[in-house]
Amino acid sequence: MGENSGYKDYVAGLLAGVATVAIGHPFDTVKVKLQKHNTEAHGVKYRSGLHCTSRILKTEGVKGLYRGATSSFVGVAFESSLLFGIYSRTKLALQGGVQISGPQPQVIIPSAAYGGAIISFVLCPSELVKCRMQIQGTDSLVPKSSRYSSPLNCAVETIKTEGVKGIFRGGCTTLLRESIGNAVFFSVYEYVRYYMHSRVKAASSNHSNLIDMGIGIMTGGLGGVAIYRRAGLKGCYTGLGPTLVRAFPANAAAIVTWELAMKILGIKHD
């Protein structure tokens, strides 16, 4: 990786974040709806994630699945840019500026945990706004007079009524989750990627872009599932099903986009 390619790492990460939201946001909306309505005494009861999805499409259309996506695209794109950029640059620094063949846990884990800790300060307010916008769907119990007109309005009103600490509610938990979660994600990604590439090279000399994409889908998807399986027992988490279903395609899209962007930008990967 060239010395002057630092900004390119952040650009590649930003594109990965856009892909994550485009693929994963509908699943996230369903999860939030299940968590909101199935825990209210007089709320709408959804039998499953599929029932919830069909209800949203019927009452709100496709745009209902992307409710709150504006703040997600901005927040996740910025967060992803920081995460992948910091991870790449920190990993390179810990390796002494030299590309090393084979994953090293003493490099991967601190790089990923550091990146996760930094992005938690962006992710916390972004997630809070996104969830509040998702909850106020057309079939919600939230009265029209109390609805937020936009993600910015939601953020401003939250700060007005709850103060700055209100927009960072749950910050410590988010920091811990992102540090540990990303250490797990990148560890799984790097080890599975190294193993699969080694097997492919041993089996065939024809290493195509299609094979790279397939490996990216598998490594990103498995890394995402490894994170979300840490969420807890199903009985303790309403909406865990859509979260697990989302984990594979959303993270697969992120990794494939990240690796493709790095290749286009001329960034050398280990």
Rank of each mutant, 00 (worst) to 15 (best):
T70D: 13
P103Q: 05
Q99W: 09
G97F: 03
G68S: 11
F73N: 01
S80W: 14
V74I: 15
G75R: 00
E79C: 12
K91D: 08
L82W: 04
S81M: 13
R89F: 10
R89S: 12
L94R: 08
Q99K: 10
L83S: 01
F73M: 04
Q95G: 02
I86S: 11
Q99V: 13
S81W: 01
T90M: 13
F84N: 11
G96L: 08
G97M: 08
F78C: 14
V74K: 01
G85N: 09
Q99H: 12
A93K: 11
S80C: 13
R89K: 14
V74L: 15
I100D: 03
E79Q: 12
G85M: 12
T90L: 14
Y87S: 06
L83T: 03
S72K: 00
S80P: 04
G102F: 10
I86G: 04
E79T: 12
L94Q: 07
G97Y: 02
V76W: 03
F84A: 03
I100A: 07
G85H: 10
G97D: 10
S80R: 12
V76G: 01
Q95A: 09
S88H: 13
S72V: 03
G96F: 05
L92I: 08
L92W: 05
A69K: 00
S101A: 14
V76P: 00
T70S: 13
A93G: 03
K91Y: 14
T90Q: 06
A93H: 10
L83K: 03
L83M: 12
S80Q: 15
S88W: 01
A93F: 11
S81G: 15
A77H: 03
R89P: 05
S81V: 06
S88C: 07
G96R: 04
T70I: 13
G75A: 15
G75F: 00
Q95V: 03
S101F: 06
Y87A: 06
L92R: 12
G102W: 09
Q95P: 00
S101Y: 07
S88E: 14
V74E: 03
I86V: 15
G102T: 10
G68I: 06
L94V: 08
L83R: 03
T70H: 08
G75I: 01
F84H: 11
V74F: 14
E79R: 02
L83N: 03
I86R: 02
S71M: 12
G97L: 07
P103G: 05
V76Q: 04
G96N: 07
G85L: 13
T70K: 06
V98Y: 02
A77I: 10
